[in-house]
Design a protein around this nucleic acid. Structure first.
Lengths: 154, 154
DNA sequence: GCTGAAATTCTGGAGTG
DNA sequence: CACTCCAGAATTTCAGC
């Protein structure tokens, strides 16, 4: 990676596990002044190394009692799918969207208030987003979370 | 949820998509003083609604060029597995660990420098962590990420 | 990348409804 | 009892070096 040194990587690693750390504390850990850390942060955000910041939430506090994975098998997986995935990514209840190797090329993670909403969402994926290109959809529900977004729980 | 009102939920929703927002800005959005927001944040963290904060990173900048999912089928899935999953969750290259419904009860997401490390990790899961209890392990590699941790990319 | 000063934010206590 | 206000502390920010 061009223009990235070990201190940048250390900053990234720390932020990944503690996204709300202050510049001052971050500076102490990597032995830099707060101003320098800020300059590096801006550089890393501009370069796209840091995409954003997020809090790790217990979804039950938002009445999101059902968390589900949707593994989707498409008949044809070409570039035209990208636009669809981008639209799905914008949905408020969707927390992750990946394209991956294997038979089920698409993986979507989303939260719901109840299982009826899960069914509705699966129908939406078939009807509104993928249409006949959707060959199979496998739904699994999260039972327990031990780590999420690099944050260890419990 | 006891002791949680709509303003708390709004704070949580904002933080989930913008984990580094200041208390002042957060206060403007939910129409509260920064001090009140701070009190609520401390309450939400104490209650366990907010588990932590994380930056969303492009793993390539850490030379983590391979991101993989490990779907694991166990012969017996009882409470004794919890301790194992907690240990796996502590590993530095593991970003998520879930127990879920379906045939492959365990889902692990982790990052690697290359595919050799993926193979090593799969071996470790079998040899060190699950042993004979591990019936099957399905590995898939992430090809593209459209959304992660509630942060939309691209 | 550091320094130092100014602006902003954070923080804890006292006061109000 | 949660919120606001306010003053002191800490942090952030930006200029110049």
């Amino acid at each position: 990676m061009p223009g990235i040194d070990e201190k940048d990587r250390e900053i990234i690693r720390i932020l990944r596990e503690n996204g709300r750390i202050t510049l001052t504390e971050l500076g102490k850990r990597v032995k830099l002044s707060p101003a320098s850390v800020k300059n590096r942060l801006e550089k890393l955000e501009k370069l796209g190394a840091i995409k954003g910041y997020s809090a790790v939430i217990d979804p039950a506090f938002l009445d999101e009692f059902v968390q589900a994975f949707f593994e989707i098998r498409l008949a044809i997986d070409d570039g035209s799918v990208d636009a669809i995935l981008s639209r799905i990514a914008k949905l408020d209840n969707v927390c992750a969207v990946y394209r991956r190797s294997g038979e089920n090329q698409i993986l979507i993670q989303a939260n719901f208030h109840n299982t009826d909403e899960v069914k509705d969402f699966a129908g939406l994926l078939k009807r509104k987003y993928f249409g006949k290109n959707l060959e199979r959809i496998k739904i699994t529900l999260i039972i327990d979370t031990f780590k999420e977004n690099w944050v260890t729980l419990g």
